[in-house]
């Protein structure tokens, strides 16, 4: 049937449905593209030290801030500290800026940023949870998997 020959009501409905489907398809494509380019995978300290992390990709990584590892530079807001899984794997995080109020030694943190060639993690953002009760779930998981691994011979 030709479009023009349809009753106006039917034609309107058809156009409407076509418009909807087209719009939704376009939106879906757009959304999936945006989703894929904005996924930040979480890596554990072991994965970081064993080179599983793609260099230069935006990821999240975290663990426990090692006691005594926080070093500040003199007259700038640069800070470096070591994050570990409490089972031997550890890596250095460098960050410039203000650390969250709940940041302290022996607490879990999650950092978003990129890993450099020499194994230093450059963070753009450091998160410590608002709630002090629990660690960030990612860190808990990181500690847990390494512990399980270390138990197996």
């Amino acid at each position: 049937m030709k479009l023009g020959a349809m009753k106006p009501q039917r034609r309107n409905r058809l156009l409407l449905i076509l418009g909807l489907v087209g719009g939704l398809g376009l939106a879906l494509m757009f959304v999936l593209k945006a989703l894929n380019s904005n996924i930040n995978l979480f890596y554990t300290p072991v994965q970081v030290t064993e080179g599983e992390v793609p260099i230069g990709a935006r990821i999240r990584a975290g663990g426990m801030v090692e006691a005594g590892s926080i070093r500040r530079s003199d007259a700038s807001l640069e800070v470096a500290f070591t994050v570990s899984d409490l089972a031997g794997a550890a890596f250095e995080i460098r960050y410039t800026g203000i650390l969250p109020d709940l940041f302290r030694e022996g607490q879990g943190v999650v950092a978003t940023g990129t890993l450099s060639q020499d194994g230093v993690f450059f963070a753009e953002e450091i998160l410590a949870k608002h709630d002090e009760k629990y660690m960030p779930p990612e860190v808990a998981m990181a500690l847990d998997t390494t512990r399980q691994d270390s138990l197996q011979p």
């Binding site: 006691a67 409490l86 022996g106 879990g108 002090e132 009760k133 629990y134 660690m135 808990a140 500690l143 512990r147």
Partner: peptide, 15 residues
């Protein structure tokens, strides 16, 4: 003080 026992116990946080 240094958290060694807590680590051995597998503590995530307090309490």
């Amino acid at each position: 003080e240094s958290g060694t026992l807590a680590i051995d116990l597998g503590v995530y946080g307090a309490p």
